[in-house]
Design a protein around this nucleic acid. Structure first.
Ligand SMILES: [Zn+2]
Ligand SMILES: [Zn+2]
Ligand SMILES: [Zn+2]
Ligand SMILES: [Zn+2]
Lengths: 164, 164
DNA sequence: TCCTAATTGCGATTTTATCTCAAATGCATA
DNA sequence: TATGCATTTGAGATAAAATCGCAATTAGGA
């Protein structure tokens, strides 16, 4: 779709950045969003930094990371493989799904029988052999909803109320 | 929760580690798997290292990471927030899902109308406000299925055939 | 028990993400 | 359009997470 969309095009969601006082729309943020919209894949923050730096030489890597963070919170962009700072593991037992808080990265299991027999990707995934699947619900957890202020996301200790 | 579960208990999937010649079952791997099985949450590799080191003083951090890697490949454990080395992003457009290769971490979009109106978590997720969801299919991509040998996972360049 | 392939430990290294704070900028207001 | 203040940026240091290389050790079949 629109291969060269994003040149100066109005990228969807941009207006969501400066709704009320407190989220200025800077050229850097615009550039990061346009760079992301211009790709069809799922780039990493560093790949986006490379892209943006091409048009905005001198931009700081930290700025790209920060721009992505505020945009994730604003709902303009999404983390695909919702990764915290570290990869998490589990022993695959009975099928279950996950609730992920987009503000604090808390992860909670969800058992929902209605989701246990979803149709597979079928012929849409030619060549891809499916081993398992699970549904990820992105949203805001109770604790974060309660604390209207800036969410607890200092440093790397992001599992503030994660069960442990 | 079985506080001392995993003491010497037969952890499910252990035998899957030494099926044919080539995957010795070491005390370290057993310890990592038992440590993981003993937790109800979704620990990070480093948290598991802490747990294991308590019973196996002197174990190397690298060993824990390697043990998790082989077990993921053997299907004994699963990466929860399927994270590669880096977090990926995308602009949330029309609803779609993802095919993730467990061997090379390739990520591909999947459009499947049948999955676009799944029932939400409902009352099972008290307090959690769902913003969006998507289904993750874990499996083996065509390229990896073709190359029966050790998958392409050298260094950080893990998006070998990821579309770009 | 012996032999060989595979794994481990250790430390160095790379990759990814975050922090600090002075200087620059967005933007509401006049 | 000019002014003022709160927010953001840049640069580099730092922290956190993951990986690498290689000699010594170990698992497991013969
Ligand atoms: Zn939360
Ligand atoms: Zn889970
Ligand atoms: Zn693959
Ligand atoms: Zn996608």
């Amino acid at each position: 779709m629109k291969s060269h969309a994003g040149r100066r095009a109005a990228v969807a969601g941009l207006e969501g950045l400066c709704p009320r006082r407190g989220l200025p729309l800077t050229v850097q943020r615009r550039a990061v969003l346009e760079a992301l919209a211009a790709r069809r894949d799922h780039p990493t923050a560093d790949q986006l930094y490379e892209d943006v730096a091409r048009r905005l030489p001198g931009i700081s890597r930290a700025t790209v990371y920060r721009a992505l963070e505020v945009m994730v919170r604003a709902g303009v962009v999404r983390k695909v493989w919702y990764a915290g700072a570290a990869t998490r593991f589990e022993v695959p037992e009975r099928r279950h799904h996950h609730l992920v808080c987009v503000l604090c990265d808390a992860v909670v299991d969800l058992h929902q029988p209605a989701l246990d027999r979803l149709p597979g990707p079928g012929r849409a995934a030619r060549g891809f052999r499916v081993l398992d699947y699970s549904v990820q619900f992105m949203g805001v957890c109770a604790q974060c909803a309660r604390s209207t202020k800036t969410p607890p996301r200092q440093s790397s200790g992001r599992q503030s109320h994660e069960g442990k």
